[in-house]
Design a protein around this nucleic acid. Structure first.
Lengths: 197, 197
DNA sequence: GTAACAATGTCGGGTACACAACACGACGGC
DNA sequence: GCCGTCGTGTTGTGTACCCGACATTGTTAC
């Protein structure tokens, strides 16, 4: 699933299933969507669906991850290295996406909103891991410390974005970023310093 | 090509190629579009293209035919039988589509505009043939007379729609229909009467 | 002229996918 | 109870498609 899908057919099939699922989510509840609905709209045979996803939950996770990944990729100034600008874009994008999730999936209940959001966090974890491993002269020796820092930071961002999306409907992403960047940047910087010793 | 393409993969591939082609026509000239452009956008292997179309001209004909067919299907009150209302819808739809062709394919030259329009006439021929063969008690014995009537009527409609689109930019489709329906309906009716004897 | 390059059209071998058929559980009606 | 219907998940066989490589045909530049 996560590993590269080289074959054009594989990439295309997943893309078609993803798009069909997102379209259906805009007009139906997740429960009301059947695998048959998805495959019919995507023009993919139903049994082929199971070659890629165990069930519609797995497709939802995939669709959310990919959509957020795409969106993030287009917003990051330099996607390969850590910087405060990248961190700001990350925070704002996640907050925006949470709002978009609420808007796009009108019929989503609390349960699968959390499922979706946790997928977003997983994407952020990967991005942060990349940044820190690409960052020159940091954490050469201790990957487990890095994993911990990534997990803490990712979920911290989630907490901020989630709170802001739920409780501050008038707030902007920039405001949110200004509030939490000092904390997060501090975490990542001290982490780097610790590992230099 | 024309015969039914049952397999889902075939229908999907052609649909993807068609959509990609139409997207590219909106931003490039026909000459500037390569088969590679089309297949890349459609997420279809280039060699697969040649399993369906001999060249990009054939794809253009297919795309125009299908697009017009779809458009027509959604406009006809009763798509299976001849009636003046159907004839009116046919005339107006063709005229509208010619305008749409000019708008959508900005970079099209005169040569392939005619290629496209002749495909539209072919679709109209098939529709008229269907109508007359489904029409109860008409032309049971002489298909060649029917073919002739269909050809004459189809190209007559083309002449009207083409002229109206080119020379009467202020005109409406309804006006055009009112002008030519008497002639065309007369042709089809006398044709029927002739064949009753 | 010709050399480099890009797009076309074709072929063979491997594979992702379609299709049909199946078993299973969950419902709802009689 | 038994029934038909619907959605799910699995399996086997045939095929549409991918991919890479190839020769051919323009097209541009030197």
């Amino acid at each position: 699933m996560d590993q590269k899908a080289v074959d054009l057919r594989v990439r295309r099939t997943r893309k078609l299933l993803q798009e069909a699922f997102l379209k259906l989510m805009a007009q139906k509840s997740f429960q009301a969507i059947t695998v048959q609905d998805i495959t019919a709209l995507a023009m993919v045979n139903r049994s082929t669906f199971y070659d890629h996803f165990a069930d519609k939950y797995e497709l939802m996770e995939y669709a959310v991850s990919e959509q957020f990944r795409e969106r993030l990729k287009s917003k990051l100034p330099d996607k390969d290295h850590y910087s405060v600008e990248n961190l700001r874009a990350l925070i704002i994008t996640m907050w925006e996406y949470f709002g978009c999730l609420q808007g796009h999936c009108q019929h989503a209940d609390e349960r699968q909103r959390i499922l979706c959001q946790s997928q977003v966090v997983n994407v952020v974890k990967k991005v942060l891991t990349n940044w820190l491993s690409e960052s020159p002269g940091t954490m050469a020796g201790d990957p487990s410390t890095r994993e911990l820092a990534v997990a803490v930071t990712s979920w911290a961002i989630y907490g901020a974005a989630h709170y802001w999306a739920e409780n501050k409907p008038k707030g902007t992403g920039a405001e949110l970023a200004e509030l939490v960047i000092p904390i997060l940047d501090g975490m990542l910087q001290t982490d780097r310093l610790l590992n230099r010793n």
